[in-house]
Amino acid sequence: MLPDSALRTTALGAVPLPAPLRRCAALVRHNTALLLGEPGPLASRMILPLVFVTLLRPLYTAAEGTAAGTVQAVTGTLITFSLLALSIVGGSILTERLWHTWDRLRATTAHPLEILAGKAVPVLAALLAQQAVVLGFGALALGLRLDHLPLLGAALLCWTLTLLGLGSALGVLARSHGELSAGYDIGGMLLSSLGGAFVPLSALPHWVRTIAPASPGYWGAGALRAALAGEAPRVLECCAVLLGFALATALVAARGLLRASARTAL
């Protein structure tokens, strides 16, 4: 448990920071230590995608050609396993709730949004690292071309913010680790499949293509593929929709935590 004194102190000789930033920095350090203390889930989300992309790439290249097949294999695997990494986001919040340490954090001077920010920053870095590993492997081992890095960076950031929102909402709404597991397993596979991660949408039934835009995975995959192709207008369109998903799910998470805090106060 992070003591309230850790939210107030500043290193000797350091430039004083505003109180909210000081509290957020302390929470970021605390949650980074917790994340690194249990590296298994994060390591599995980094290693397994490399195995899958290696095994699936020959199938896609045989069907679509080397360049298109490589893009399909890498982006599809990235979208799928980053959605499964919702377990990292949601688990960090659910554990606080089940251990009742969330209530103790709320008893400190930290605002709920500061607590969420303290949890979000380490997970944001972890998710970006996971995606960088997959793309780097694709570039170094499979010949994936990364010619438009600014567009790719924008697509990855917007997609990761969406994952943070989805995972936070899932961690707030789930009542047990079993529910959380079902949520990210079923939800992750469903959203990635609707996004065309495993099978290109052009090969799926018409009704699937019709409802696909309701899935964040559709826009995430679209943003990544457009970024790799250098299609800036499409990247901007997909990023705008992803930010909408991120904002909506973040509001759900924040409202749920604020209501839980209000019930505790009563």
Rank of each mutant, 00 (worst) to 15 (best):
R8L: 15
R8Y: 01
T9Y: 01
T10D: 02
T10Y: 01
A11H: 02
A11P: 15
A11K: 04
G13Y: 03
A14R: 07
A14P: 13
V15Y: 01
P16K: 00
L17R: 03
P18M: 05
A19C: 03
L21Q: 10
L21C: 03
R23N: 03
R23E: 12
C24Y: 01
A25R: 13
A25V: 10
A26W: 10
A26F: 11
L27D: 05
V28W: 14
R29I: 04
H30Q: 09
H30G: 05
H30W: 12
T32W: 07
T32A: 11
L34Y: 04
L34M: 09
L34D: 11
L35R: 03
L36G: 04
L36I: 12
E38V: 14
P41I: 00
P41T: 00
L42S: 14
A43M: 14
S44C: 11
S44N: 13
R45D: 08
R45P: 00
R45Y: 14
M46H: 11
M46V: 13
M46Q: 11
M46P: 07
M46N: 11
I47T: 14
L48P: 01
P49Y: 08
V51T: 10
V51H: 00
V51I: 15
F52K: 02
F52G: 03
F52A: 15
V53T: 15
T54F: 12
T54H: 09
T54L: 12
T54Y: 11
T54E: 08
L55H: 02
L55W: 10
L56I: 12
L56N: 06
L56A: 13
R57M: 14
R57A: 14
R57D: 09
P58N: 11
P58Y: 11
P58I: 12
L59R: 12
Y60D: 11
Y60F: 15
T61D: 09
A62V: 06
A63R: 13
A63M: 10
G65E: 05
G65H: 05
T66K: 10
A67D: 15
A68D: 14
G69E: 06
T70I: 00
V71L: 06
V71F: 02
V71H: 04
Q72S: 07
A73M: 01
V74S: 04
V74F: 01
V74W: 02
T77M: 00
L78G: 08
L78M: 12
T80V: 08
F81L: 12
F81R: 01
L83M: 15
L83G: 10
L83A: 07
L83I: 05
L84P: 06
A85H: 09
A85M: 05
L86A: 08
L86Y: 07
V89D: 04
V89E: 02
V89C: 03
V89N: 03
G91T: 08
G91R: 09
S92Q: 14
I93P: 06
I93F: 14
L94M: 05
L94F: 01
T95I: 06
T95C: 01
T95R: 14
E96Q: 13
L98P: 00
W99Y: 04
H100D: 15
T101K: 03
W102L: 15
L105N: 10
L105M: 14
L105K: 04
R106V: 15
